[in-house]
Design a protein around this nucleic acid. Structure first.
Lengths: 158, 158
DNA sequence: TGTTTTTGTGGGTAGTTGTGGGTTAAAATG
DNA sequence: CATTTTAACCCACAACTACCCACAAAAACA
């Protein structure tokens, strides 16, 4: 699985097109077929999964997620709000008006790589604020995470 | 099995015809023979199964569902209220007056894809309310699902 | 530093998609 | 059997989208 690092700023044009960082495009596996599935993420950001990563995730959901009303509701929600988008020749994907509204995206988008193999799309202004706020608590969360890792035991430490 | 993603808005005309999203039509397998079986779904929505998916479902029901009075009742009900509809040249299916009444459909329909291989038909207004209500609990259920996946073990973690 | 290649952004156009209506064939009704 | 109603099929058109090309800015290279 490919990991994505870093954050990059782009603009959305009138047609809802957003460029995907060349670095990320190069990291895509052939099985991704130049396709991303865009879905709602936490903190009102959008998540975009390479197709292969998404399929694996779906398979896990189908196999392991117990059938409860809550989980069914969740699946229905995700199905209805996600959209697959193929990269155009220039390496862009398309965001729907609904998705842009959800993430408060108007003009500028910050694309953030995630170690777990997907990328996040934020309204640039919102991301700046978010990362600024997170920065303040950095030392606290840093040791909090290290502490959890230590408790997990050996294999968790890289 | 093909998964369907996203939601799309259409209108029903005087003859009860509803367009099926081109995206979904393209995702149909040849075995579906351009036919959908429309049946009652939960939350007063309608479900439409591609013929091949429906047949598989029926086979599973026949094979695995125990014969109890309740199940018989259910099967009888489903048999009687379902209807198959073939796509016309423009890619539309027909809804009966009864079906439209069940789902409170009058003019505008939202067609919602489902990962499990079928699609849902909602009255647009009702869907908007439903999805709005679900949205409120989004972050909560987001982490609830991730939590379950993590606990399920290894393969669930991308 | 000058030159070439890659990357990000914008816009035009042809083909596809969604919507409506008309016409003919089949079924239901009296 | 005649008449009315219903449903299937076909065609037409407006709106939209995917695809294409163009160009400027940035990066890589010599």
């Amino acid at each position: 699985m490919a990991s994505f690092y870093g954050s990059f700023d782009y603009s959305v044009d009138a047609k809802g097109r957003v460029n995907i960082p060349a670095k990320f495009r190069k990291a895509l596996s052939p099985e991704a077929e130049d396709t991303f599935i865009v879905t709602y993420g936490s903190e009102n950001c959008l998540e975009a999964y390479p197709k292969d990563v998404w399929n694996k995730r779906i398979a896990d959901l189908a196999d392991h997620l117990p059938r409860t009303p809550e989980n069914d509701k969740w699946l229905r929600f995700i199905s209805g709000t996600s959209a697959d988008s193929v990269l155009d020749v220039q390496g862009r994907i398309i965001l729907s008006a609904t998705q842009m509204k959800y993430a408060n995206i108007t003009k500028n988008v910050t694309i953030v790589g995630n170690i777990k193999g997907y990328i996040e799309l934020w309204d640039s202004e919102r991301y700046k604020e978010y990362i600024g706020a997170t920065m303040k608590d950095f030392d606290t969360s840093f040791y909090a995470v290290e502490d959890q890792l230590a408790k997990m035991g050996q294999s968790a430490q890289v």
